[in-house]
């Protein structure tokens, strides 16, 4: 298809996770490429969030992990906690499904945005502040300067999610794991965020794992699409093929569940 060589930014191979003796991932394989959006859909409870958490080393206590997560020539699962801490936040960032998980309730938006920047990028207070306001404007928070001084609970659910996206982007990561980042947003703001994500991939070569159950969102931005069910990836392929000619019955059932658009009803 494209002439440009593809670079694997992050490769997940045979990822297995069990929590409290209960298997939740049964050998997940996924490849993220620089400059591409990899969409991940799947049944509720199929293990999409756990896959993202495993990449960041944030699985719940008492989880057992095996397999391989290759990033920059290293296996993240083997990496000592201190090194993993450096990678997480600076090189690999995550936006959580629930913005309450991404944001600290007691810290101002400014602190949350600038802390990582100052630590990982070594920028000064003033520059960090300017960058922070710029990021808020990018994710379309009204009155960014004023917003910096506020706390998360003073924003609406969708605005909190946009702030969480800004926090994730603060350190200019190479890989972004976005878990249902636009579910809490209305479609017009969602359109803005999708364009932002697409732009970051195209211009900066960001590799994105986009977890979403919205097949419209998938169709709009994903280059590759994978579908999970019961802790396994059951189908993976280019967007056009998976959404138009799915090979797995579960993918088909998802597409069949979609309400019929009016134009087709009248045919």
């Amino acid at each position: 298809m494209t002439a440009a060589p593809k670079t694997a930014a992050l490769t997940i191979e045979g990822l297995r996770v069990s929590i409290g003796g209960h298997d939740v991932l049964h050998g997940v394989d996924l490849t993220l490429e620089a400059g591409r959006v990899h969409g991940l859909a799947g049944e509720s409870g199929s293990g999409k969030t756990m896959t993202g958490l495993a990449v960041l080393g944030l699985l719940p206590h008492g989880s057992r992990v095996s397999g391989r997560i290759a990033f920059g020539g290293r296996d993240l699962l083997e990496m000592p906690a201190r090194e993993l801490n450096e990678v997480r936040g600076a090189k690999i960032a995550m936006v959580f499904q629930d913005p309450a998980t991404s944001l600290h309730p007691m810290l101002t938006v400014e602190r949350q945005l600038t802390e990582h920047m100052r630590h990982h990028l070594g920028v000064g207070r003033k520059e960090a502040r300017e960058r922070a306001a710029g990021l808020l404007a990018k994710v379309r928070i009204p009155g960014p300067e004023e917003a910096l001084k506020r706390y998360p609970h003073q924003f609406s659910g969708g605005m909190r999610q946009r702030i969480a996206i800004a926090v994730a982007l603060a350190c200019e990561p190479e890989v972004l794991i976005a878990d249902e980042p636009t579910t809490a947003l209305d479609v017009t703001v969602q359109a803005g965020i999708l364009r932002l994500l697409r732009g970051l991939c195209d211009d900066l070569g960001l590799a994105v794992l986009l977890v979403t159950h919205d097949l419209g969102v998938m169709s709009a931005v994903a280059d590759e699409v994978s579908v999970m069910k019961d802790g396994l990836v059951v189908e993976t392929g280019p967007r056009g093929r998976v959404l138009r000619e799915p090979s797995h019955p579960y993918t088909r059932s998802l597409l069949d569940a979609l309400p019929v658009p009016p134009a087709e009803e009248s045919r």
Partner: peptide, 9 residues
Amino acid sequence: PSPDGAGVL
């Protein structure tokens, strides 16, 4: 967004 696989933002 329409789920037609066309990649239209």
